[in-house]
Structure formats: C-alpha cells, structure tokens
Simulated assay, not measured.
Amino acid sequence: MNKVGIIMGSDSDLPVMKSCAEFFDRMGVDYEIDIVSAHRTPDKMYEYAKSAKHRGIGVIIAGAGGAAHLPGMVASLTSVPVIGVPVKTASLSGVDSLYSIVQMPGGIPVATVAINGGLNAAILAAEILAISDGLLYSKLEEYKKDLKETVEKKSESLKEKGYIKYLES
C-alpha cells in the first residue's frame, strides 16, 4: 500500500495536522509527517515533492496558513495528488489560506478541504488510496457506518429528552 505524506509549513500547524496522523493510525495507513516550508526551506520542499512518488507516497496532505503556498507549489512539482488544508490564521481567520490554496491555475489541481479540516483531508487521502486497497476500503465503510450510528444515537437521545419532535401531517 502507498503511504501518505503529511507536510506543514510550520510547527504551529501541527494542532490541525495531527488529526491526519491520528486518523491514519486508526485506519492502519502508513504515513510520514514533516515540516516543509515553501518560503523558508524551498530546496527541501522541491526535493520532497520530486521524490515523493519514488518513496512510495500515494497522496500528499499539505497544511499551510497565511500565504499558504505549500500545497500549490508541491502540486506544481509532482503528479502525486495533493490535498491542501488551509490553517486558520489570527489575522484573517484562515480565509487568506483558503483562497491561496483553492485558487490554483488550470493544470495544477489541489484538492482543498475546509479551514482546519485535517480530518477530512485524511479521510479523502484514505479514500484515494482505497481505490486499489480493498481492506482500507472496508475500514472506511466501517468508519462511515460508525458515524451514522453515532448520529442516530444522539438523535434518539434528544427525542427522549423532548428536544426533537415531528409534526404530524
């Protein structure tokens, strides 16, 4: 099975990006995680992107705040799918990061999740890998079944407390 590369522009992005690692631990997906700054370590970013496929990376998740060039720059250097995670910033609440990641020019796609959406990035990466991995696909199906059951239990609990009711038609 391919592994996932999780990279971030700064250690301040780790609280958002660690949800990716936690999900992969749960799913049994191999991953690596590192700080790779597009602005402060461009040579490292270049080498990371160019060598990803040869190192067994099947998907890259790149989290970045502010100018958020990391996901797009990495995507411009490799044909390995890149998922961008805009990280919330103090000055513009992550909207700057979101716009920077989602507005890629034609030919350089970056799949983009919500601001601070590390978990959804991990799920999407796992779904990409599951195209050719039946066991991982089954684990994802079970995960989604568990989500459904959790919502149904919460709904039933609220009904019992009288918070949810339906009008008869």
Rank of each mutant, 00 (worst) to 15 (best):
D43V: 15
V87G: 02
S51H: 06
S100A: 15
V80K: 01
A130Q: 00
E127G: 00
V82R: 06
V82L: 09
M45E: 01
P109N: 08
A67P: 13
L70H: 05
E160N: 02
S12K: 13
S157E: 09
V87Q: 03
Y143A: 04
K148N: 08
S76H: 10
Y166D: 06
A121P: 00
L14T: 15
V82A: 01
T89C: 05
L167S: 08
G162W: 02
D25Y: 09
G107A: 11
E32H: 06
E141I: 11
I6C: 08
I115K: 04
P86N: 04
G117A: 13
Y48A: 07
I123M: 12
Y46C: 11
M1R: 11
V36S: 10
Y163P: 06
S76I: 10
L167P: 02
K161L: 03
P109H: 07
I83W: 11
V102F: 08
A38Y: 14
K88Y: 01
V110A: 04
Y163W: 07
V151G: 03
M1D: 10
S79C: 14
S100Y: 12
P71T: 08
A75H: 03
I123V: 15
S169L: 14
S132M: 06
G65H: 08
K18C: 02
A126H: 03
M1P: 15
M8E: 04
K159E: 07
A125L: 07
I128Y: 03
K50A: 14
I57E: 09
S51P: 01
L147H: 09
S79T: 15
I60Q: 02
D11R: 14
K44C: 06
S10A: 00
V85N: 01
A62C: 07
Q103N: 13
P86I: 11
V87T: 14
L92W: 08
H39V: 09
I101A: 06
M45V: 11
E156R: 11
A90G: 07
D11L: 07
T150E: 09
E149Q: 10
T112Q: 12
Y163T: 00
S10C: 09
A121E: 01
T89F: 03
A111M: 12
G94W: 13
N2A: 15
G5H: 01
G56C: 07
G106M: 09
A114K: 03
E149V: 08
E47W: 13
K88V: 09
